[in-house]
Write a protein that binds this DNA or RNA. Structure first.
Lengths: 110, 110
DNA sequence: CAAAATGTTTCCATATAATTCAACTTTTTA
DNA sequence: TAAAAAGTTGAATTATATGGAAACATTTTG
């Protein structure tokens, strides 16, 4: 954790998308899909918050928690509850979707 | 909760999709996207488990928990942790994605 | 229908997510 | 560059998700 996380600059949603799913032309703009990974969640919260021009404190007020809580959600790689995710993105007026992809080929495995 | 949840039959993933996102032709088959809602998560687990022809007990074994735990995940509308979601769908060999959609129009709100 | 298999519920324990407060650090700005 | 604003961290607390065991209910099958 010396250099790596130290000077990690903020990324916009678009940059996150570039980094994490490449430029594989998603037609609808402003829709960013990720493999569900905890670390990304925090980055997403931060990105959207920034795009909304909110401070952690302001976002906290919208949700009803302290800024320190927002900070933790944004930067810890820890586990999170669905409820929390929904709460945060609702406050950010962002829509959260969820998809399950099932590989047909695996069907006969069990 | 008298009649409503009482006789709710099992639904396949396809039926869930029909009910929840309509037939708006998703091109890739076997990819089902939902607004992230807790109740749906349980239904999804159940659907995929059924399609894999597993009992709750068998799924439990794959993950390392009792069948009662699976039952709870499938039917309670309670909160769930990301980690749990990942664990379950991994055992089911299903891919879980997550997306955030941000409405540009909301931009100037704050 | 009886037995077996599958699923559900309740009670309970344990782990950990959510949260606050206050001190501290970093970034911004006048 | 000093003050103000924004963000981070640690310690402590509270709330609740995860999980097991066992008894019960429902469904399946011979």
């Amino acid at each position: 954790m010396e250099t790596k996380n130290k000077k990690m600059k903020m990324m916009t949603l678009g940059q996150l998308k570039d980094r994490d799913i490449g430029e594989i032309g998603t037609p609808e703009r402003d829709k960013y899909e990720f493999d569900l990974r905890m670390e990304l969640l925090g980055e997403m919260i931060k990105s959207v918050r920034k795009e909304r021009n909110l401070t952690q404190e302001q976002l906290g007020e919208l949700i009803g928690v302290q800024k320190s809580q927002i900070s933790k959600l944004e930067r810890s790689t820890k586990n999170v509850t669905i409820e929390t995710i929904l709460k945060v993105f609702k406050a950010l007026k962002a829509n959260v979707k969820f998809s399950v992809e099932m590989n047909e080929l695996e069907f006969n495995v069990a």
